[in-house]
Design a protein around this nucleic acid. Sequence first.
DNA 1: ATGCCCAGAACCTCTGGA
Length: 264
Amino acid sequence: MRIATWNINSVRARADRAVAWLEQSGTDVLALQETKCSDDKFPYSVFEAAGYEVAHVGYHQWNGVAIVSRVGIEDVQAGFDGQPGFGEEPSVEARAIGATCGGVRVWSLYVPHGRAVDDPHYAYKLDWLARLREQAAGWVAADPDAQIALVGDWNVIPLDTDVYDVADFAGHTHVTPAEREAFFAFERAGYTEVSRVHLPAEHTYTYWDYQQLAFPKNKGLRIDFAWVTAPLADRVSSVLIDREARKGKGASDHVPVVLEVEER
DNA sequence: ATGCCCAGAACCTCTGGA
C-alpha cells in the first residue's frame, strides 16, 4: 500500500494534476493540505471518477485538509481533541483530519506557519504542536500496536541541512529551538519520522518557493514529514520524495512524500 | 529547459504563504 502526503496549495487549481499524479504514482491514500476551499467547493467528483473516496474539512479559502483513499475511509474526524484555535475569539481552523484507510489511522496535518517569532501565530504554532503531541502520545499509550501515520506540512525545518542556507532564516520562524523541540518531541511520544530513516541525505527538499527561480536553483526546504508509530514504521520499506511534481506550469510549491507500506 | 510568485476573494489590491 502506498500512503502519500502533499501540500497541494489549492485543490481546485490542481485537482486534475492531483488525480493524474495519484494514478501514475499508484498511490492508495493521499493526505492533502492547503486545499484552500470550503467543503461545498471541494472537487469531489474529480477524485470519485478515478475511484477514490474523499474526506475533507475546510471552512473558507484558507487552510483545508483532506484524505483521499481507494482502500476505504472510515471513522473520519475533523480536528483532533484539544486542537487549539486562533484569533481574538479563538476558532479552530481546518488543519487536521483523521481517517482509517486500509487499516492505518492517517492524519493529514497542516501545522500553523507561525508568521514571525513575535507574532501571536508563533505561540499558536507551538501550542498546536504540543497539543497534537499530547493526543498522539495518548493514542500509542492506549494501543501500542496502533498503526498511526501523522503526515503533512509541519512548517518546521528540523535540521540546518534541511534548508539551502540556514543563515537566510536567522531570526525567522521554522528554525527556532522551540519549534525544533516541538517537532522532535514526537520521537518521545512513540513515533518515528520515516522519511528521514529512508532518505537521510542532506539538502533533500520538499518545498521550493515560487519566487526567484528557487526550484531550478534548488533553493528548497524540507518541511513535509511522516511521523508513524513503531509497528507501522516496521512496515515502511521505502520513501520517495517526488521532485518531478514540482516541474512545469501549474505545480504546487510542495511535492508529494510517498511511503511504501508492506502488507501485514 | 525545472526558468525569474501564486491563489482566493473581489473587483483592486490585499491576505497569506515560507
